[in-house]
Design a protein around this nucleic acid. Sequence first.
DNA 1: ACACCTCTACCTATCAGGTGGTAGGCAAAG
DNA 2: CTTTGCCTACCACCTGATAGGTAGAGGTGT
Lengths: 187, 187
Amino acid sequence: MSSNSREAILAAAKRMAQAHGYNGLNFRDLSDEVGIKSASIYYHFPSKADLGAAVARRYWEDTASALESMLAETPDPARCLGRYPEVFRKALAMGNRMCLCSFMAAEYDDLPEAVKREVQAFADVNVAWLRKLLSAAAVVNAGGSEQRARAIFAAVAGAQLIARSHSDIALYDSLIEAYRAAGLMPA
Amino acid sequence: MSSNSREAILAAAKRMAQAHGYNGLNFRDLSDEVGIKSASIYYHFPSKADLGAAVARRYWEDTASALESMLAETPDPARCLGRYPEVFRKALAMGNRMCLCSFMAAEYDDLPEAVKREVQAFADVNVAWLRKLLSAAAVVNAGGSEQRARAIFAAVAGAQLIARSHSDIALYDSLIEAYRAAGLMPA
DNA sequence: ACACCTCTACCTATCAGGTGGTAGGCAAAG
DNA sequence: CTTTGCCTACCACCTGATAGGTAGAGGTGT
């Protein structure tokens, strides 16, 4: 049963880390939001590093399944590729938040080793998915698909970063549109 | 006459903020690096917010003059535009650091108001410079130059973010090359 | 020449509040 | 009577910030 609290902690920690980063994530505020005492978090996670790693892992797992759902829903590779920015748009729409792993990418040097690994995994998941669809859509030749996949991932992350610093989700849409107009990614 | 310490503090704070963000910038480590006591910083800057704003202001001023120097050195708009990524490359080359304002863009919601303004100014300086050169190079028609300028700025910031999280400056170069191959920016 | 003053650029010592983390207790469920 | 899931009560350490002192440089009046 339960581990209901564990899930609640993960969810709240995800939201907080998306807004304030790993560094800005703290046990007091986190436990307040969950409705338990800060010491109780240690029953579910032995340390902040473990919590951070669990949150980041859950984050890329959720992203991976969201991408797979999207592909099932929109099987055409080029059209599905065009929907990729939706994934990053959600965070901005939910209170001007960021992709958890983009924030952690900035904080990378100060991250515990276990957290670093999960942040890397997030990037790998995204690039692998993009590469698969790029190859299927024949947008670029096979050799350049890896490079193009990474470029799309980086560009979308950059768009989110800039849009956030302007608290303007319309700017995100505008940037994505500009990427499309430039030919970086399909519409 | 000095204010030699003031400059030393600004320089050290810039380096620390590039590596750890505004949140990760602290007076103890900062004063240690400068070689004075933490309380002495308050003689030069009344608060952390003031220091942060001064550092960010100096940062975009330096960037603005670096961009102008580059233009004087490479007057051809398209060729100069192609050199734009050099500016962001430097931070990665200096100990896998980030653009100060990209890091602060992630932390945006938690930033003091005075610091936010300087971060915005950095983005404005970059976009204005890019727009000027895009128009001059006739890469895009006049109407789309603003949008394209923002797209290049965001994409380069994203490339730096991703490269940093892999501690791999070659990845940055590869991403920029991919942007060029896709037609987002001139070589 | 001397004493006197003021300003600069730091220092020591301290503080309240926040940080991650630990020890030990306790009520309910099995 | 043991395990689960949480609690209270701490702790050491770090954070930005303040109060008050001080050594030295440079100017001023006598």
